[in-house]
Design a protein around this nucleic acid. Sequence first.
RNA 1: GCCCUCGUAGCUCAGUGGACAGAGCAUCCGGCUUCGACCCGGACGGUCGCAGGUUCGACUCCUGCCGAGGGCUCCA
Length: 571
Amino acid sequence: MAPQTGSNAPAEAADTLVGQFVGGLMIREQLTEALRVAAEAQGLDAPAEIGLEQPANRDHGDWSSNLAMATAKQAGTNPRELAGQLIERLEAAGIPHVDSIEVAGPGFINFRLADTWLHDVLTAVVDAGEAGYGRNDSGAGTTVNVEFVSANPTGPLHAGHGRGAIYGDALASLLEHNGYDVVRETYINDRGVQMETYARSLQARAKGEEPPEDGYHGQYIIDWAAEIPADLDLDDLVAIREWGYARAKQDQTEVLDALGIEFDIWFSERSLLEEGKIESSMQELKERDMIFEQDDAVWLRSTEFGDSKDRVMVKSDGDYTYLTPDIAYHSVKMGRSDRLINVWGADHHGYVPRMKAAMFGLGHDPDALEVEITQMVTLLRSGDEVKLSKRSGDIVELREVVETVGADATRFTYLLQSVDSQQTFDMEAAASQAMDNPVFYTQYAHARIKSIMAKAAEAGVERQPLADVDLSVLTNDRELDVLRQLFAGPGMIELAGRERAPHRVVQWIRDLASAFHGFYHDCYVMGDGVSPEQTQARLWLSEAARIGLASGLGLLGVSAPDSMWTDEVDA
RNA sequence: GCCCUCGUAGCUCAGUGGACAGAGCAUCCGGCUUCGACCCGGACGGUCGCAGGUUCGACUCCUGCCGAGGGCUCCA
């Protein structure tokens, strides 16, 4: 799903990840290394990747390894006995923060740590700051091009486009946070049959006629046709086409702007033709014997790459199919990026094998092209399902979604689920400013921290330098839970990037918000019965949580508001 | 018929080969003299679609079947 180059092997990625942090976040590395040393002292070949995880069940310790189970066979003993022997060695090693080590269940080695390891996490988060938190260099040195939206300039973006648009943008941010050099790009099909059909549809409406049978029938065609300047000759189809092209592009750009999506490159299909890219890529395919002529048409040998049939590139009437300029386009992109990621709707999935075949035919590594498929979105408007179909005219414009739901909630809601699953987007639920809406719950946590900080300032309480603050007073499980979530964030960001799965970040940030709300409820930062030491430590804990929330929300392109009192954050 | 994605709690969905499968919502209890109750806690709730296989261990990997959506144009 997410092929990696050799230099990005998981173990190495994990090392660079923890390497970003001093103190607490090094704990995984320390434990892994101690396990490796113990295994080698035991005369075992330690596995390349030693399993080490934070068990969901805290009774199983803070950290747990399956090393004994994985190597019992080669040791010629049973896992529990081997675990016991390894533990003796581990105890002798004196690993920082480790309180006790025990064997459990079928042979797990469970570590219990002193709270100090989490106090180190707090310091590391504050040191990293909002911009640095969760950043790693697992993708350093790799340029990746993320192509998304790529809609025809023949109408407004609809709600279905929204999912791909926001997913693509969030994925790009995620990859940037993982050290990749990212280019956000979109492709405009500004030539071809669809453009002509669009022009004729506008022309017909402008003349008060019905669009052609195979034309565009949406209400927007009527609206836009009415905007055509009086001095534009309605018999000049080219002029109408160019006007309509600009109109559609303007509309799409406005909506993308409202969602905070900006492309580095808007790539024009026309430019391919003008620069002879289509001819040159055809020529290359020919040289590699990847195309052939039959029935007056030119075909791509895509069956050699798992496609169910060969595909036509040049029709018998001499026109290119959609595929042909797109192949040239991908060739251009390959020329300036190490990896390509395309975000396509589910209705284009069948297109993958032929594009891979073309990449192969052009001498590129087909695995350098990834295609992320976003499954379909069903939209609920006032509880009723609305079908998304551009041709039928009954569409929900992305503009309507953003205007009803707000940019933040629109982004967050689209990102809630894996793009592998079909999604039902309930506009009423997404727009709701209540606790059943995860975006408000999460933003509220951030606003709440801001409110505490304001309250502290009002009361004349100043945060002392962190180095002077005694973090050992943070012993409440609520406090430690916040720190556990902050520890988990960077690993989650790395994983989410590797899996091309921004929704993982959404899950995590909801958990972080939840941990903070719990802390807030049980632990007063200021007031009666709270010592000045606790106030200081808790203010810093809150600041660390704020950094995590702001950073995570930033990755998703969602604002981290100072206050929830007004709905300005919706704008 | 072939290809892709999905099938997990009443609903919407998470789940990186590990120990008792999680969250939110819904339902039912409980909690505000302090920093935002737009909040917190508890209870209830599961044959992880079905059947095989690989593995010390499978919701996770493999095969087959069933069901849902999408795709299989010299359309885009």
